[in-house]
């Protein structure tokens, strides 16, 4: 049964009352802000001077492309969004925007973001942005999400690509460093989303989305969270001994990784009652801080090196 009792007759003539805020909500602004931030880091750490206008253009295109992917995702998931308390207030379940309107909006933005990035910056970045949108919408939303418990593991690649797109926009080529950033976000995604799924299991079960806690149960999910967190911490620290990022990043990564691991162990150990719920919420919240702080460290390093190279 749907949480929101709203029905739009798609066959009847309809004049939209959707305002600009509804369309902005389709872009998933919070997801977009993380995408912009990780892309900014990819852009800044590239060893190439980028003109500020081109840097702004690249970030704008990546942001709009991510928003387009979000709108297309909502256009395709209106039915399950209506069944979940977390997503029931989105514009489509609320009846503000119809799925075809969201689809048209998303396709238009996807077209313009890819073409603008390709024409104004370079086609490697443009092609990667197109691939990112395709992967999120077709591979994750249409194929994986309703089919397998590995949906967010494989689909996480789409969320991990923005820094790679940004690096390509700056450098016009690819290198090891953006792929390291890709791997960090890729391995960060499962513990982050499975922590969310643990305290939203009922939501996902009601909507029939085969998230890991729904399919394999909470205990198996807790183990997977711990295993992926161990891999994540190792992958996030590795660029330091490998010589790609320096010791400030390495030490920060170790400290943050220790925190992430401690929260994951807490989730693994506490399995019943309010303490278990609190542990999953804490891991979810800390995982956002972890990724933000890790990428912010890289950003600060680059800025500090540019401002005071002698001290650094």
């Amino acid at each position: 049964m749907s949480i929101v009792e709203h029905h739009i007759d798609l066959t009847a003539p309809r004049i939209s009352e959707a305002d600009v805020a509804d369309f902005i909500a389709l872009l998933k602004p919070r997801v977009m802000s993380l995408v912009v931030f990780t892309a900014l880091v990819g852009l800044v750490i590239a060893p190439v001077h980028v003109h500020p206008v081109l840097a702004f253009t690249s970030l704008l295109c990546i942001a709009v492309g991510a928003g387009a992917a979000g709108a297309l995702n909502m256009a395709l998931e209106g039915d399950i969004d209506a069944l979940m308390s977390r997503t029931a207030s989105r514009p489509i379940p609320r009846g503000r925007i119809t799925p075809p309107e969201a689809m048209a909006f998303g396709l238009t933005l996807a077209f313009f973001s890819v073409m603008t990035l390709g024409i104004l910056v370079n086609w490697i970045a443009g092609s990667l942005l197109a691939f990112t949108i395709f992967f999120y919408v077709v591979i994750y939303t249409m194929a994986l999400k309703r089919w397998t418990a590995q949906n967010i593991v494989i689909g996480g690649a789409a969320g991990a690509l923005p820094p790679v797109v940004a690096w390509a926009a700056a450098a016009g080529s690819l290198s090891v460093e953006p792929l390291l950033l890709f791997l960090i976000i890729f391995f960060w995604t499962p513990p982050h989303f499975w922590a969310l799924a643990l305290f939203r299991t009922d939501d996902y079960a009601r909507a029939g989305v085969p998230m890991l806690p729904v399919v394999a149960g909470p205990d198996a999910t807790r183990l997977q969270i711990l295993l992926y967190t161990i891999v994540l911490v190792a992958v996030a620290v590795a660029p330091w001994p490998l010589g790609y990022f320096d010791w400030v990043y390495g030490v920060t990564s170790l400290a943050l990784g220790g925190g992430m691991l401690a929260f994951a162990i807490d989730v693994y150990r506490r399995r019943e009652g309010r303490k278990a719920l609190r542990a999953t919420r804490r891991l979810f919240a800390f995982s956002i801080l972890y990724l933000f702080a890790l990428f912010a460290t890289l950003l600060v390093e680059v800025v500090a090196r540019a401002v005071a190279p002698s001290i650094w």
Binding site: S16, E17, V20, V53
Partner: peptide, 30 residues
């Protein structure tokens, strides 16, 4: 309500197109 929301959407589309024009102009200059 429909007139108001349509006007809002039209202004937003105009602004977006304006940004696109300025962007193409600025990058061409750069």
């Amino acid at each position: 309500a429909q007139k108001k929301s349509r006007r809002q959407r039209s202004i937003a589309i105009a602004l977006a197109l304006g940004v696109l024009v300025v962007l193409f102009f600025a990058v061409t200059m750069v």
